[in-house]
Amino acid sequence: MYSELVMDHFSNPRNVGTIADADGVGTVGNPVCGDLMKIFIKVKDEHIEDIKFQTFGCGAAIATSSMVTEMVKGKTLEEAEAVSNKAVAEALGGLPPQKMHCSNLAADGVHEAIKDYRSKVAGKVE
């Protein structure tokens, strides 16, 4: 049902954890739906310097979280914002159809974290 790459990210997820002094935190999903993702980012010079995640969810939820952290780490915020949920699924070699709509939220989590960072920066400027 899952590709080898999905199972690899599921069994050895990259960048699991939290960042205590994160510059931005994004939360997507809902435990009621069976998926909840939290993405922590550290930003330096408009680049994602560090990224960590915590996920409650199925194999696809964990694998997409892990994959998106690899895809955006070191990238500019703009580049990270251009990464879509679909691109994450494609990078994993595809997901089963029923997983595309419910567990494929990790890129949204990154976008939320960036939004959180931007709102904090804006707050500081004012």
Partner: peptide
């Protein structure tokens, strides 16, 4: 649980 935000 170590990677679950709910446990945290």
């Amino acid at each position: 649980r170590a990677m679950s935000p709910l446990a945290a």
